[in-house]
Design a binder for these strands. Structure first.
Lengths: 353, 353
DNA sequence: TTGTAGGCGTTATCAT
DNA sequence: ATGATAACGCCTACAA
């Protein structure tokens, strides 16, 4: 193993500058710049000299200075989601990154932990860092203050939850219809007592999914409010809500879990309790195939890609009006949603009896 | 208060500068700078004037220029992993971000897709962007060239796979021992034919895990090479390797899958084939509890945290010698690894017959 | 408390 | 093909 000290003295921290490279190559600053940037009007010999010198010195262009000199801001797009450890968000991030890469843009991410205040801090931080666009899974329920950011020339793209009180791009799922059709699917299998476990009520996605649930139940004269549970915002609370629902004297014969976290929590609880009500979850997830879980599926990586595309279009001013993309979902049938209601089901769930 | 004398952009594309703010507030550039940065020696009135002007203009400090002027680099730490959609990597990212946040540092991430060339590109990109430290799950197998980066004062922290030919910090798992003890566990249950499905051989983690396998098998006079499969680098190839192994005339009675991707692929294949050999996987994963999968567990979020701590220590020069952290693993018993070998097992796997 | 130089590392302009 | 010079937006001296 060669030299193993941490920061060898030779470098003493400060990076070599283009001026040093120029000196070593025996050319002017500007020539060095041209050579390093691969500009055309440079003699091959000169270019080689400069490149050698740069290599010897371990030179790296200072991007900040470069952007500053060119009057450009940056080529970085910021993404703020709730928590990267949620597969939905990490898939989103992956899609965003993939798309940005095709445009030679960079991604910087941060997690809000679904806390509005933290989200605001992060947005501020990103803006001072000159991000070129902001992609947001927002936890804030009033985005009027963010209009200023857009006015400053930084486009904002809302993903999963649309912007409120602001004219901005958005990419959201068809939450209402996805949920409605899933509930129809259960009702068609004879279920009349269907539980709904949802996230925080303040989230738009949650509300839309719940409305889809209510509509389907109502269409069949079923009471939607009997087995509803809200506020399941992480695995622990999801498990709790599910446990609570399934250990009632009169538990529902089917369950709808309104996002991937809740579905996982429900599966854990069901496994623990040794019960297997019919189950459909919103969001597909890994191993759903092995576990045979029917889900309302969509492609989060693709959502990320679309969001990035919108951001890029806006950056390049190819579009002046905000654009709203609604992504359809599809029911992926794997078994858990096809369990029929037991013949002995009480069925006493007629609306407003 | 007419201010139109100072031209330079009114409301169009270019962001307002500090000079414009100063002009509008009727103070000098420097005073505006002081006020905006919250420095002490500014009269309250002056400060208010400046802040108002800044607000009116929608002024945001240009971080790049600010850092450049101060000779400081930035407060951003770069993280490069294989692919954010792999839960191991996203958990790592989460840990890194959590720790950085406590130090008011920011994280920027990128995916190498496990391609050495892409990794090199990203590293270059990050370095030109003046990152303060680099945290790396590296796919490259010779890091001598990266010594130059450290010499420039940018500490590099290797995670999961240590740096090769370079003196740098690292945080790795005890791959050898974790795997060895898992295999011992299987052998103790009577298994003599144990399959090993591993990732690309060029990866250090893979090699160490395979060595642990070989050692345990050897210690009991078993042939380690009979059911070994390498190069399972994604779900598709993992499934293929597993299918191939399990549909042989004489399949192993137990399986060791050497990372979370491979374990998932194996579970899918086993489910599809309707077979259930004993199984232990390296890396814990979501729903492993529901599926009853025994794993060699560790905490990737914590690994990320530790990596970030090392990076921060190095940035602050609190340490001069590289530090290597080895994280122990533990066997999490959930059932799949406790299935005993069928009495009818052929058992004809004595080493070198 | 405020203002005046000068420079951070790079690029654009306009010569040569 | 190459080079001097002036920006870019901001900050650290060092005055006043």
């Amino acid at each position: 193993m060669p030299n193993t000290t941490h920061n060898t003295a030779s470098g003493n921290g400060s990076a070599p500058t283009l001026l040093q490279v120029a000196a070593r190559a025996g050319v002017s600053l500007k020539t060095a710049s041209r050579a390093v940037n691969g500009e055309p009007r440079v003699a091959d010999q000169t270019r080689a000299k400069v490149l050698d010198a740069a290599h010897d010195l371990g030179f790296q262009l200072n991007r900040a200075a470069s952007l500053l000199a060119r009057g450009i801001v940056s080529n970085v797009v910021g993404l703020i989601t709730g928590d990267l450890s949620n597969p939905f968000y990490s898939a989103l991030a992956k899609g965003v990154e993939q798309e940005l890469r095709t445009q030679d843009m960079q991604l910087t991410v941060a997690s809000s932990d679904e806390e509005p205040d933290r989200e605001r801090e992060l947005i501020d931080e990103f803006v001072t860092r000159q991000i070129r666009a902001l992609i947001l899974v927002s936890t804030i329920d009033d985005h009027r203050a963010m209009q200023a950011i857009q006015d400053r020339g930084i486009p904002v793209v809302f993903v999963d939850r649309s912007g409120i009180g602001i004219g901005a791009d958005s990419v959201v799922l068809d939450n209402h219809e996805g949920t409605r059709s899933a509930i129809e699917h259960l009702i068609r299998r004879g279920h009349r007592s269907i539980g709904f476990i949802g996230d925080l009520s303040r989230l738009e996605t949650h509300r839309q999914r719940f409305e889809g649930f209510v509509e389907a139940m109502g269409a069949h004269g079923l009471d939607p409010n009997r087995w509803e549970r809200h506020g399941a915002h992480n695995l622990a609370t999801a498990r709790e809500a599910c446990y609570n629902l399934l250990t009632q004297p009169d538990p529902p014969t089917a369950l709808f879990t309104s996002n991937n976290r809740i579905t996982v929590g429900a599966l854990q609880t069901m496994s623990e309790l040794g019960v297997a009500p019919a189950l459909i979850g919103f969001d597909d997830f890994e191993l759903a195939d092995v576990l045979g879980v029917t889900v309302v599926a969509h492609d989060p990586v693709d959502m990320g890609r679309i969001a990035a595309q919108l951001a890029i279009e806006a950056i390049e001013r190819r579009r002046t009006e905000p654009s709203s993309v609604v992504i359809p979902t599809r029911l992926l049938i794997r078994g858990s949603g096809e369990r029929t209601a037991p013949a002995t089901a009480t069925g006493g769930n007629t609306k407003s009896g």
